[in-house]
Design a protein around this nucleic acid. Sequence first.
DNA 1: GGTTGCAAAAGTGTCGACACTTTTAGTACC
DNA 2: GGTACTAAAAGTGTCGACACTTTTGCAACC
Lengths: 261, 261
Amino acid sequence: MNSPRKSPSTPLRRNLAEEVTAGLREAIVSGRIQPGSPLAEPVLAAEFGASRAPIREALIALEREGLVEFNDRSRTRVRSLSARDFEEICSMRIALESLAARLAATKWAAEHTEDIEENLRQQEQAATLGELSRLDVKMHEYVVNLSGHRRLVAAWRGIRWQFEMCLAYTHRLQETLAFEPRRITVDNHRRLLGALASGDPDLAARTMGAHIESSLEWSLAEFPAIANGKTKLPKAFRTRDQGRGDEAVPALSASVVVEQP
Amino acid sequence: MNSPRKSPSTPLRRNLAEEVTAGLREAIVSGRIQPGSPLAEPVLAAEFGASRAPIREALIALEREGLVEFNDRSRTRVRSLSARDFEEICSMRIALESLAARLAATKWAAEHTEDIEENLRQQEQAATLGELSRLDVKMHEYVVNLSGHRRLVAAWRGIRWQFEMCLAYTHRLQETLAFEPRRITVDNHRRLLGALASGDPDLAARTMGAHIESSLEWSLAEFPAIANGKTKLPKAFRTRDQGRGDEAVPALSASVVVEQP
DNA sequence: GGTTGCAAAAGTGTCGACACTTTTAGTACC
DNA sequence: GGTACTAAAAGTGTCGACACTTTTGCAACC
């Protein structure tokens, strides 16, 4: 042996950094920690009963996921998502998932259709809007993973939780309006499934792009508050981009890949 | 004062982590550190005269840029780029830069045309293939930044240095064949500039996609070694994907966004 | 000769400490 | 009441140390 054991009680818990990352992510996405809240390393270290090293690593990981942001002086805050952020997230999803659908279509097999259909069945039975969204994201994630494109997967993960954060906020506003939208969503997904299973890469990409775009338009229609700043969202969520001379938000129609059918 | 100063000689150098990141990045991209080389924290710490904390941070940053990879047991190595990686990088560039071009076209102004034309003039005078590539990347970076899409910029940076690493390798093989390719490249860029300046988002996106795709095809034609593994590349660069049951490389034509003109 | 077992070496995860910087909170001053 | 100055508090960057795990090197063994 080497030296005095510090705490023999500690049952060798590795990857404290990952635990902290997961814990913080959950708290942020769920809204338990409000956007804009400062995240000081010593404070978090105390809360998680860890030292600053794993906390630091977790914060870097969360920054990569877009859930927190570092200030000029390296101070960390929970990120606030503005309408512009929402548009960026959606246009990225279109760009990335169109490519994912293209690749997935070329290697589509019967088992994939079965997997997706199982998911769609669950969607039809989903009790809450939140549950429905979770299944929706899961389906999209399935296609992204199936693409086998590791950099695409990585980039997608870089916005995934930001997207869920947006969803959580919109759902918190309107937990009810589930019926009509749900049928539309599932119908859309069936069309998408058909395109993927057809094996036609162009069709799959086009359909995926149109699908995401249409669901985005629906969101904007339902919650114009998100898009124009006259928002009913929690105050901290309502952010005028605190950027340094940031350009104006590009019109949505311009940030979306339009593919002619 | 509080306690004994450790080294009064240290002139307050901040951001050691960034220095290390930049130093390692340069060494990796230039090939001074061979792909596959292990990067042990204590070793690097000694080399850079730093402690492990900033080294660790630098390695995480480089992993994010795709220049190093962590193994199951968290050991770090310089990443080896296979033909599949090359294709992934290019298809990501097409997806991202097409969107960037679309956005840039909507906000294009005379000054931007001037900036690009200055760059093209320099391209025409570039003495080496490496210099030409540097200008090429700079031009593409210009468009990406002009898009004003922060997540797009972030994703692009996530593959930028990997791309340069590929370039460095191909150039090391063939430093000479500059004349014909260069004229083609510059011609392509002029066409691209026209599309961007036209203000037509669809045209800009389409042209950008085609431009990147064609330059990729040219690379594959010139250096089939890169694509098929029968390579003249340095041994460490020649990597059979050491993945765990990785799927086959999707055909290039399937990983590229084809947009009908 | 090749294999197995074991101890040293090398490596990662986490911790606590300190130097320095930025904020915060008073406090004196006008 | 508002403003300028100052000292405490809070925060980040970096360091060295230790506990534990994985590799490596070597030696005994079949």
